[in-house]
Simulated assay, not measured.
Amino acid sequence: MIGVVGTALLSAAAHYGRLLASVDRRIVVRAPATRGGQRTWLAVTGLGSRSAAYTAVAVAQCLRRGQAAGTGGPARHWPLLALAASDVARMVLCRAVARPRPPAENQLAHCKGASFPSRHTALALLATGLATGSVPAAAGTAAVVGLSRIALRVHWPTDVVGGWLFGYGWLAASRIVADTITYGRGRPWSADTPRRRPWPCG
């Protein structure tokens, strides 16, 4: 419930109040001072792109399918479906909150649409979690990608926090659904995680 409640509260604050603006002013992440630094942050931010996220989950599913022969039905495609559904849900939330991005003259990377929650941060967390089943890996990847979004001046810090909470909540919900789909048939969600939860529900 942590991800769901946290995302809801931050969404309301971003839409209706100036509280987040005062928080954002107190969080400082230096912008890259050189072209090399900018290219480095752009490479990092690419880890949260749609192409990287969907590719990672698809490859992980292919490998997992080869290790667990006989797995089929909805569970076979669930990770990709969960990723796509989260992408649509985030887009709806983003348009509903309609938070402006940082000033265009300060932006160091291409971006479009409203600012909250950070899509790159959410996709990085969810895709890494679905591909690896590891919460530390998912949280770490999302944290680094989130820092890149702030450094490139395309998101406010609280956008990144919102993206992290959104991704975490969706990851936990995805695990619950995956367990429901597969355990009834006597098969674990993946061959290397038999009947155990690699991340908490929250």
Rank of each mutant, 00 (worst) to 15 (best):
R101M: 06
A98E: 01
V145A: 06
G133Y: 06
T132Y: 05
V23E: 06
Q107K: 02
A124K: 00
R39L: 14
L123Y: 00
I150H: 02
R39I: 04
G184V: 12
G3F: 04
L130T: 02
E105F: 11
W170V: 08
H155T: 08
T182Y: 00
R153Q: 15
T193G: 00
A109I: 09
T132V: 08
P103F: 09
V177E: 00
Y183T: 11
D192E: 15
G48Y: 06
P100K: 03
L108D: 10
W189C: 12
R101D: 07
H155F: 09
A173R: 02
D24I: 07
A127W: 02
L81Y: 09
R65L: 14
L125Q: 01
H120S: 12
G66Y: 05
A21Y: 11
L42K: 10
A60P: 03
D87E: 12
P194I: 10
G17N: 08
G169Q: 05
G37L: 05
P103N: 08
A139S: 10
S22D: 15
T132L: 07
T180F: 14
A104L: 14
L80C: 09
P79H: 04
P103H: 09
P102E: 06
V161R: 00
T71N: 09
L9W: 07
L152M: 10
P74A: 15
C94D: 08
V92I: 13
R95I: 04
W164D: 03
R101S: 03
A82Q: 02
H15Y: 11
A139H: 06
A33C: 02
